[in-house]
Write a protein that binds this DNA or RNA. Structure first.
Lengths: 201, 201, 201, 201
DNA sequence: TATGAATGAGGTTTCATTCAT
DNA sequence: CATGAATGAAACCTCATTCAT
């Protein structure tokens, strides 16, 4: 709702966001009541409405507060000319982020299923990943390093989805039982194969 | 709850399941009220509780009633010895089922995200698909037609996930704008490439 | 409601009364639902209403069916001229009946608390006991064997109440931990003392 | 449920307890609806749940609020050395309390019969009375003033039960038609006789 | 008579939101 | 700004009773 104008207000708001994150992770989105949050933040019910219009709004604030952690690309290192190394680096960065934020990813999934407004957020977050990958595919095709028979958009969608779902199953639902390195290796090999890319000599 | 013992009871129960399916599709799981269902089925509130303990239970019944449609294997045709044709057939069958039942797939996705008990159901449904694919991959590896460096389970997971998510994005959320044939083609090509399989001469 | 006119009807009614007794004892009066009874009696809900108007009516029928067991006076033996032996015999008969029908006594207590109509039944059952005792006290007073300063009605009320409550606490709630013989002995001695009666020489 | 933290909250809670007492007395426990209470207390339904989890909990609060009145011993006066006078004083105090709180005693009786959780409360309240009496009996036995052939616990149980039931029948159900003084006199005489105690010279 | 499905009034409980202090 | 009690609409679920077969 409104932005805090005093030091004290800023502290209250921060406490609420922090409390909300804990409660959401613990109870899930639907089972979280406003009073759970104010209780955890150790402040009055009414104070919640000083800063947020409703549950959605705190949820957005929570997501905002963790966006950095999720999206630190840190594709810092140069992989030189090896296209497979580049693919691997991107996959590792993504999958590791999912692993580290598993609870929030699960939460986001849940909220996306419930609330239309968050579906967009989720898609957008995914889209950045997909577009970066589409660009990579196009580049490799131009350089003759990847199968030119593939539609780069569709391929990026498909492969990004593959990696993202794999990460979800390995680190969120744990229905796939595998370590990060194995998941990265498998994803990278499939990805490279799928595009017809091979390691630089 | 209990099973109808008379013809009339069977009719009422069926009417409730049918009504529930419509209301769920129209309103979504969370926004569906028991009275919406009984109203649509044109019977009293209490009648609902004659057959179901709660919303979850009707939902399970709805899902049960559509399982057939979803799981019609109909991989009837023989693809001869062409492994790529076999992959294509499987992908087409799956993706077409998703396309035809888009609303229910969306629903299942939503409910799975909300209610733990349905996550199992969803996983199981997916597992059948994955296991079939894992078997296929193993066979191709044995015959020397697929990359032996891949873990067949992980690969099956990854590629099945890829196809399933692609279908979801193409036919449920429509964030990917593509026709069935194109999706099938892209998926198949990526899948075949990923495994290092090529068309039979 | 109506009395069975056929053999089959009589059997159904009897099954319902029997089932009701079991369910009442198991669940208590309030928690017993009509369907619990028909279920236990293995007949349809509607059949209940062929014989009883409501729960109260079956309950009355149950009580009727066990009245004998509760009220078998069987003060058969002659205690000769010993007034204390007579008092003891009466107390033993009463307390033993309570012990044997503890569950039903508890039930009657419960229903009496809930439903005004059964309070009368309970009082009447008690009244018989009290009046018999009042008559006994009056006789002893006439014969100069009991304290003539006591109001016989009030004394009968008080002492009967004493015995009845003692029985209740010993055999129903079990808050008094004592064997039948001890309870009979204590009650008798107090009773005799209270009236100023002593054993025949 | 939770305790009020403000003056206003305390007032609302008190109004609810007070209203509950009236409604319970008027309607009986079972026929009292939560809305009857909030209506009488002139507040919203939800406010009830701010302070109480359910009907049982208000009932406990009502009972708590009247415990004092019931348990004011006020056996202030000294009865000197006359044991019968002491017995009379105790009986009068108890019976008068029952007379003054007849409606609540009836209520407690009803609820105790219905709800297991209150049986304990009722028993405990009675136990204090019984134990005090057992101590008195033991003392009289030691001093050679009471029949040593009696088990003091059982006798205290029996006689306390006698008085309590007499009070119940005289002032609650009114099936015994007698004035306080007569009831006290009869109870005391029976009690003294039963123990074999006689008035000090 | 027996059956068992259908009915729906009636009660309970939750919790987001407001607002006086 | 913070507080926390008050509000009441809205949904859930039960079960005695009826009645067509």
């Amino acid at each position: 709702m409104s932005t805090p104008r005093t030091e004290r207000g800023a502290r209250t708001r921060a406490a609420l966001v922090d409390a909300a994150r804990h409660v959401f992770e613990r109870e899930g989105y639907l089972d979280t009541r406003i009073t759970d949050i104010t209780h955890e933040a150790d402040c009055a019910t009414g104070s919640f409405y000083t800063y947020f219009a409703d549950k959605e709004e705190v949820f957005a604030a929570v997501m905002e507060s963790v966006r950095h952690e999720m999206l630190h690309p840190q594709l810092d290192a140069q992989q030189g000319d090896d296209p497979v190394a580049a693919i691997e680096a991107a996959n590792r960065a993504y999958l590791d982020a999912v692993r580290r934020n598993a609870r929030l990813v699960a939460l986001m999934e849940q909220v996306g299923a419930i609330d239309v407004r968050f579906r967009a957020w989720r898609q957008e977050t995914g889209r950045a990943f997909i577009e970066r990958n589409a660009a990579g595919i196009r580049r490799l095709q131009r350089e003759g390093l990847a199968d030119r028979g593939l539609d780069p958009e569709l391929a990026a969608h498909a492969l990004s989805g593959m990696v993202s779902r794999l990460g979800y199953q390995a680190f969120v639902t744990r229905e796939v039982d595998a370590k990060l390195d194995d998941v990265v290796a498998a994803a990278t090999r499939l990805w490279a194969n799928a595009l017809g890319v091979s390691r630089a000599a």
